[in-house]
Amino acid sequence: MSVFVWIETFEGRAVPSSWEALGAARIIAGATSTDITALVFGENAAAVAASAGQYGAANAIVAEDEALRDYLLERYAALLSELVRSHRPSAVLAVASNRGRELLASAAADTNSGLISDVIELRVEDGRIIGKRPAYAGKVLMEMRANTATAFVTIRGRAFPPAASAKGAEPAIKIAAAVGAADAIATEIESFAPEVGKINLADAAIIVSGGRGMANNPKAPPEGISGDAAKIWRAKDGFENTLRPLADVLGAAVGASRAAVDAGYIAYDHQVGQTGKVVNPDLYIACGISGAIQHQAGMRGSKIIVAINKDAQAPIFKLARYGIVGDLYEVLPALTAALEQRLAN
């Protein structure tokens, strides 16, 4: 009846938000007087399991065989479902990342277990797990209870503090192997183009976002570029040479409004909002973003919001703790310089 936590790994290392899932698991383990078992599959799993011990896992189930080297939904789900059937954990937790979502939903279906996703608060009542989660783009909260012996829960990134680490704590390790025939897999990965060095929006503690206002870059585009292409050039140059330097000083991820994405100023994977990513960083700096309700849906949960906009009436100021009314192309370089100086001290 242990609490299972799937530790997501990428290229042999734990995805840091997995420690948040261990933190959330403590709430359940504490309330039901059980312990935590980390599940680590794939490359370097044993070493990752050792770290999980330091973050509060008393046990670990490790599966390192070649068939599991790279994450593949079918194989990982088959193994997770098998482990749930044989160990009957009270809960299975993971972060609501792309993989966490699909893996837990699949294994919950395989084992006919209740799944509560994107949870921001957890409690246990009469032995049943109850999760609070945002709905309707955070305009409403809902509470859901899992009615089955095993409850599957995905947690929203940055909603739970990571478990504290204790040096030297060693989990008791069990070894598991891949389930099913190696060739009974319906998909094959043909190629993968990693985006190195990019900070994931969902995990970022600080985000600097740009909107349609990024197009008002005073810099002139090269000869021969005019019209919409000139706008795109100006905005792209602004994201690269004005906004990114600020993000770099802060170690921040770069976000954007849908208007900026749709106009071709920046790629879609930067979009924050109702049809983009939902983020909840400590600090969100919105530059040249008006603050439409659909944008707010993605960033309202940020701890401190800073708005930089030349229009004092922009709705974003209503959400912001601090605002600067001004041209972002003057404010951002000044802010970058001020922070560089302040951080150097």
Partner: peptide
């Protein structure tokens, strides 16, 4: 396998906005 126990309005976000202006942009 799950039951919705209830819906609630999120706690109101208590923000007082401070507009900063120290004269010049730096």
């Amino acid at each position: 396998a799950t039951s919705v126990l209830g819906y609630m309005n999120p706690p109101a976000r208590d923000v007082s906005t401070e507009i900063l202006d120290a004269g010049d942009v730096s």
